[in-house]
Computed example of a mutant assay.
Amino acid sequence: MSRPERGVQFAKSVKIIEWLKTEILDQIAHLFKGIHHANQHVIIDSLSSLIVSTYVLARRIGFSYRELDQAVVQKLREHTLEGHQLEEWYGDLSTLEEYLNKR
Rank of each mutant, 00 (worst) to 15 (best):
R66N: 04
T54I: 10
T80C: 04
I28L: 08
Y55M: 08
Q70A: 08
A29L: 15
T80L: 05
G91L: 07
I43D: 04
H41S: 09
E88P: 00
R77N: 12
V52D: 13
A29K: 15
L50K: 06
Q9Y: 03
R66A: 12
S13T: 03
A58K: 00
E67P: 02
Q70R: 11
D92R: 07
I16C: 04
W89D: 04
V8Y: 09
F63D: 09
I44V: 02
I61Q: 02
T22H: 07
I17E: 08
E87I: 00
S94T: 15
E82Q: 15
E23D: 11
A58L: 02
Y99D: 02
Y99N: 01
I44P: 00
V8N: 05
E18S: 14
E98W: 07
V52L: 11
H79L: 10
I28F: 08
L20E: 03
T22Q: 07
N101S: 13
D26T: 14
L93G: 04
H37I: 01
K33Q: 12
E82V: 11
Y55K: 08
E87Q: 05
K102I: 01
R3G: 01
N101D: 06
E98D: 03
S48Y: 10
E82T: 12
A11Y: 15
R60V: 08
V52I: 10
L76H: 07
A58G: 10
G91D: 07
S2G: 14
K102T: 02
S2Q: 14
H37C: 05
A29T: 14
I24H: 07
S13C: 04
Y99V: 00
Q40E: 14
R6A: 07
E5T: 00
E97K: 14
W89F: 00
G7I: 14
L93A: 06
A29Y: 15
